[in-house]
Amino acid sequence: MDVTYESTKREVRTDQGVIRYHEAGDGPPLLLLHGSGIGVTGWRNYRGNLAVFAEHFHCYVLEFPGFGVSDPVERGGHPVMTAGDAVIRFMNALGIDSAPMIGNSMGGVVAVNLAITHPERVQKVISIGGVGASIFSANPSEGTRLLQEFADGPSREGLLRWLNCMVYDPKTITDDIVEERWAVAGRPDSHQTLEAMYGSESFARQQQFLADSAIPPYWSMMHKIQCPTLLTWGGDDRQCPPDMAMIPLRLIPDGELHIFPKCGHWVMVEAKQAFERVSLEFLQR
């Protein structure tokens, strides 16, 4: 199956701009939602997995607004909320009533939030790290602190430090990965989104808002998730340490957890075959 960048790229116009995505495969729909971080795109998160999932599903790899690929939205808001709105707009534009969702890190948070607020649109959730809250490990994590450093003062050296923090095996980070991430990180809307999520001032405002707000954090409402949920995690994740999984595992009524050994934050990359096997078994039950 041909799953090259050029052969799979698509776009759809919505009332808040163009959403770009990659499409491959036949069968029931499956949405793949990317994470945050430096120079991230949906294609870079899932290009290595798309061919396998496309053998069983009609796959859509979304590019969230504000990350340098899809049109940024005119009105602001936190990137996680913007991404969730984009998923609903995308599904409406393509006539997708409901679908299972795979979400890497921030993408997992987006999928979980949608499962809470729009349960009729989400059939199953597979999260890759990111969901929950730290209960034993330091907060902010090592990876988040490196993101803050980069957001406050971008540099190639800062990018490399963060990339090495994402993986268990540093050989995973090739020169090509560094170059392509650096290229996207320099785009104004991409860096603006990174600053909004991880810049020191923005991060401090977010923490103060959470402290002052009467609105409960999303993870405290995960008991409302009605769909089967698979939490996948790297045992050596330094961006979102594995103890984060304990709260969602306890709260989600139909939740389960799979931890991959010798694996960092990029489970779909470092534990590629095992992740695909576990995910397909879960999706096809």
Results as ranks from 00 to 15, higher is better:
166 M>R: 09
117 T>F: 15
163 L>W: 08
139 N>L: 07
12 V>S: 04
153 G>H: 11
149 E>T: 04
59 C>V: 02
145 R>T: 08
106 M>S: 12
83 A>M: 08
272 K>M: 08
64 F>H: 13
187 R>D: 14
59 C>Q: 06
162 W>N: 01
75 R>P: 14
16 Q>E: 13
236 D>N: 15
135 I>Q: 12
100 P>A: 01
47 R>A: 13
250 R>I: 11
113 N>G: 08
177 I>V: 05
22 H>R: 10
172 T>W: 11
4 T>D: 14
138 A>W: 15
124 K>Q: 02
6 E>C: 10
84 G>K: 06
114 L>K: 11
136 F>A: 14
108 G>W: 04
40 V>C: 12
84 G>T: 04
100 P>C: 00
59 C>M: 07
85 D>W: 11
28 P>S: 03
196 A>V: 12
203 F>L: 03
199 G>Y: 00
271 A>K: 00
282 F>R: 05
81 M>Y: 15
269 V>W: 06
199 G>A: 01
195 E>C: 08
80 V>G: 09
121 R>L: 04
191 H>T: 03
40 V>Y: 04
220 S>E: 09
71 D>S: 09
118 H>G: 05
263 C>K: 07
39 G>N: 08
204 A>V: 13
142 E>W: 15
104 N>R: 01
189 D>A: 08
211 A>P: 07
207 Q>E: 04
23 E>W: 06
164 N>M: 10
251 L>Q: 00
139 N>E: 13
90 F>A: 01
3 V>I: 05
118 H>R: 10
2 D>K: 14
265 H>L: 09
107 G>Q: 00
48 G>Y: 06
78 H>F: 05
16 Q>R: 15
160 L>T: 13
131 V>W: 03
31 L>Y: 01
193 T>W: 01
156 R>W: 08
170 P>G: 11
124 K>D: 00
51 A>N: 10
92 N>V: 06
40 V>W: 09
279 S>N: 03
49 N>T: 00
210 L>K: 13
211 A>E: 05
194 L>Y: 02
13 R>F: 12
141 S>N: 11
46 Y>R: 01
78 H>R: 07
145 R>S: 12
220 S>I: 12
152 D>H: 01
252 I>T: 12
112 V>D: 12
159 L>S: 03
206 Q>V: 10
172 T>Y: 14
48 G>H: 07
140 P>S: 04
109 V>Q: 10
37 G>D: 08
246 M>D: 13
84 G>H: 08
46 Y>C: 04
38 I>C: 07
227 C>Y: 04
251 L>H: 03
4 T>E: 15
135 I>H: 11
124 K>M: 02
119 P>Y: 06
261 P>H: 15
218 Y>G: 07
270 E>M: 11
228 P>H: 01
22 H>L: 07
169 D>F: 12
8 T>H: 08
54 A>N: 14
80 V>P: 05
70 S>N: 11
56 H>F: 05
115 A>Q: 01
48 G>C: 04
239 Q>D: 15
197 M>E: 07
162 W>T: 06
227 C>T: 11
178 V>T: 12
227 C>F: 03
155 S>H: 00
